[in-house]
Amino acid sequence: MTKTLAAPLESELIIKKSRFLGRIEAITSQQEGLLKVEALRKSHPEARHVCYCLLVAGQVRQSDDGEPSGTAALPMLRVLQHKQLDNVLATVVRYFGGIKLGAGGLVRAYSQAISEPLNQAELIEVKQQGELSLKLDYEFQSLLRHQVEQTDIELTLDYQQQIHALLQGEPEKLETLYLNLREATRGQVERLG
């Protein structure tokens, strides 16, 4: 069972005048994680480094952002993997204090900035996500919208000769929604792909 965070966590460490601001939060896609990293860079323009590690569906993206290779993102990744986390972004913003920490000192600082807040973390199970593509007549649009509003399924509509709907959510909920729509429309909803 893979886990993610129920709520974002933050930490602040000061080591030899360098300030390390750690943050760990749940994300649903690599793109979401990269946008959060970019926002962090903009909100900390004076920071020397904004290092990150993100894990989504077992896929890793990371950056040492100018720190010596292997001293920032890799130690952060090891902490996340040790806790068996997924769908998570770990970032550490470093304000350089003028005293070099050495490779070992950097590894400890970046690990600690992520591991300390995780000791108090509330973890939740990562729910598998699926997709369902449907084609239906315009007369059933309000029925579709109403059914989707009763769940936590995401809906994207594409208006063509018929409506093409892309639904994203937990596979069991998608299947239940599809069966309910087929019944309510007497089979006039078509699964695509």
Results as ranks from 00 to 15, higher is better:
residue 5 L to R: 00
residue 6 A to F: 11
residue 7 A to K: 14
residue 9 L to Q: 08
residue 10 E to Q: 12
residue 11 S to A: 14
residue 11 S to G: 08
residue 12 E to W: 00
residue 16 K to C: 01
residue 16 K to F: 03
residue 19 R to F: 00
residue 19 R to Q: 06
residue 22 G to W: 01
residue 26 A to Y: 00
residue 28 T to C: 06
residue 29 S to M: 03
residue 32 E to D: 12
residue 34 L to E: 14
residue 37 V to Q: 10
residue 37 V to K: 09
residue 37 V to N: 11
residue 39 A to P: 00
residue 42 K to T: 04
residue 43 S to I: 01
residue 44 H to R: 01
residue 44 H to P: 06
residue 45 P to N: 00
residue 45 P to I: 02
residue 51 C to M: 05
residue 51 C to E: 05
residue 53 C to M: 08
residue 55 L to C: 08
residue 56 V to P: 02
residue 60 V to Q: 14
residue 60 V to H: 06
residue 60 V to M: 09
residue 61 R to G: 01
residue 66 G to D: 03
residue 66 G to T: 03
residue 67 E to W: 04
residue 69 S to V: 05
residue 71 T to G: 10
residue 72 A to V: 10
residue 72 A to F: 10
residue 73 A to S: 15
residue 74 L to V: 14
residue 78 R to Y: 02
residue 78 R to E: 15
residue 79 V to C: 03
residue 85 L to E: 11
residue 87 N to T: 00
residue 88 V to N: 04
residue 88 V to A: 09
residue 93 V to M: 06
residue 95 Y to A: 00
residue 107 V to Q: 11
residue 107 V to F: 04
residue 111 S to M: 07
residue 115 S to D: 14
residue 117 P to I: 05
residue 120 Q to K: 12
residue 121 A to N: 10
residue 122 E to V: 15
residue 123 L to G: 01
residue 123 L to S: 05
residue 128 Q to T: 13
residue 128 Q to P: 06
residue 129 Q to M: 13
residue 130 G to H: 03
residue 134 L to T: 08
residue 135 K to R: 14
residue 136 L to N: 06
residue 139 E to C: 11
residue 140 F to R: 01
residue 140 F to A: 06
residue 144 L to N: 11
residue 146 H to F: 09
residue 147 Q to Y: 12
residue 147 Q to G: 04
residue 148 V to H: 01
residue 150 Q to A: 10
residue 152 D to Q: 12
residue 155 L to Y: 02
residue 155 L to A: 02
residue 156 T to E: 13
residue 158 D to W: 02
residue 159 Y to W: 05
residue 160 Q to K: 12
residue 169 G to N: 09
residue 170 E to S: 07
residue 172 E to T: 10
residue 173 K to W: 10
residue 173 K to H: 12
residue 176 T to G: 00
residue 176 T to Q: 13
residue 177 L to I: 07
residue 177 L to M: 09
residue 180 N to H: 14
residue 181 L to N: 04
residue 183 E to V: 00
residue 184 A to D: 08
residue 184 A to K: 14
residue 189 V to W: 00
residue 189 V to R: 03
